[in-house]
Each structure stands twice: as C-alpha cells, then as structure tokens.
C-alpha cells in the first residue's frame, strides 16, 4: 500500500512573532521551525499503518528551501522517500492554489491513501486535506482518531463535537485528515537519522507545477489582535502579583 503524507513546516509553537514592515507576513528571518504538530500525528498514523499493512510512506512538503529540515526529520522517523515542492510562503497562502499544486505533484504517485494533519498551526485554514481530496477526486474523512484496514476499505473513527464520535467506512483510494493527540509520536532513532541521509528527496519547483487560476481571496494585511476586554494585568514579581490578584478577586469580583 502506498501512503502519502502531506506535511508542513511552521514556526515553533513558542515563537515570539513580529509583523513584517509590509504588514503582509511575519518577520521570519530569526525564527526556528518545526513540523506542524497535526502533521506529525498524520505521519505517525501512516508509519503505524505501514507496519500493519506493509508498503511505502512518501512525504510531500510544500515550502521554502529551509523546509528540508522538516523533510529530513520525517525521513529519519521512518518515511521511505520525500517530495519537496519548492515554493516561498506567499505562493502557499491560498489553500486552493496549494491543493492544486500538490495534486499535480502527486499525479505520478497514484497513492492508495493520503493523510495530513487536520490544520496548520500557522495559517490554520484547516482545509488543505479536504481541498486536496476534491482536486484529486478522492473520498475523504476528517478529524480521524484511529483506523482499521479491511481489504480495500478503511473504517475510520471520526471525532465530532461535544465528546461524540462516529465510525465511517471509506473505500480506498482515499484521503484522511488526522486529529492530534490520538496516538503517541515516535522519536527518530540514531539509525533512522543516519538512513535518512541516503533517502530520496525529489525536488519539484512549484512554478513548474503551477496551475493557472485566478486568485479568489486576497490577504490585505496581518496585525496583532486588539484586546476585546479591558484587562488588568500584573507583571511584577510572582508574590506581589498574586497578592494584587487576590485582592481584586476578593473586593471587585467577590468570588472569594
């Protein structure tokens, strides 16, 4: 079985973000990056499924040259090979354009299953997987917690709201978006890191895959959100802040 996992590289979760001078994106020169966390769970699910069903796990990542770090990590964890769609951040800010580019890059692969995280920690559209499924003509299911393969059919457990779940049968080939946290992530072994250096990374410039289509949404600007509430914030020494807060809670909020 051939499983493709779409992964993305995003700024580390604890990054202090600053808006760039143009107000269109963040200052990204000094940031450190990591794999988008939901995609790490998608990769883990794919590796677990390969252990049961055998076959191949191919990662695809659209991003700048620096994304090769995240691709190498995925290979070190056990992916067999990778496709790096080389593009800068702006080209990938429209999820439909990205979906079309990725579908084109995957044309020759004919995967049995495509997996990706439910959303990205940066743009957070939560749509790439579903768009990719539609462009590739595949059935899909989102927010998947676990899966069982039976012949050519997967039974997947979907998360719904308010603690509800639903099992769904989906025929292969198909696309799944994976919910975070449903399984434990593995670490790369030393052997894995060594092996990763010899694994194939196919580089495809996005410009060569670009599907001509007019832009349908436009990002005007990005900015720090204004406060919706007037908050009283203490930032002094812990003991002092604690005393001030307790006083407010006693005499203003009267919850103590």
């Amino acid at each position: 079985m051939k499983i493709v996992v779409a992964i993305k590289q995003v700024p580390s979760r604890d990054s202090q973000l600053k808006i760039n001078a143009a107000g269109k994106w963040i200052e990204d020169a000094d940031l450190s990056y990591e794999i988008n966390e939901p995609d790490a769970y998608a990769l883990e699910s794919a590796l677990q499924l390969r252990e049961k069903a055998s076959g191949e796990v191919v990662v695809i990542c659209a991003g700048p040259a620096g994304a090769s770090q995240t691709i190498r990590e995925a290979l070190a964890k056990g992916a067999d090979r990778a496709i790096h769609v080389e593009t800068d951040a702006f080209e990938v800010s429209d999820p439909l354009a990205l979906g079309r580019i990725m579908a084109k890059a995957l044309e020759a692969e004919q995967p049995d299953l495509v997996m990706t995280g439910l959303q990205s920690d940066d743009l957070g559209y939560g749509q790439t997987g579903v768009i990719l499924a539609e462009v590739m003509g595949l059935p899909h299911a989102t927010l998947i917690m676990s899966m069982e393969l039976d012949g050519n059919t997967l039974t997947v457990k979907r998360e719904l709201e308010d603690g509800w779940f639903q099992n769904v049968e989906i025929p292969l080939p198909a696309l799944l978006t994976i919910q975070s946290g449903a399984t434990k992530l593995r670490y790369a072994t030393l052997m894995g890191i060594k092996k990763a250096k010899t694994k194939e990374v196919k580089k495809l410039p996005a410009a060569e895959l670009a599907v001509s289509a007019a832009q349908v949404i436009h990002l005007d600007r990005i900015y720090m959100p204004g406060k919706t509430k007037k908050s009283v914030v203490f930032d002094g020494p812990a003991k002092e802040s604690a005393a001030k807060l307790v006083e407010k809670l006693r005499f203003e909020v009267r919850v103590i």
Partner: peptide
Amino acid sequence: QLFQGKINADIRFEG
C-alpha cells in the same frame, strides 16, 4: 486568526 490566535488577518474576496 493565524498562528493559533496570536495574529489576525484581514481577507477580501476576489473575482
């Protein structure tokens, strides 16, 4: 919102 709510974005439709 972008970046888990750390940044906001203004978006317009085109076409």
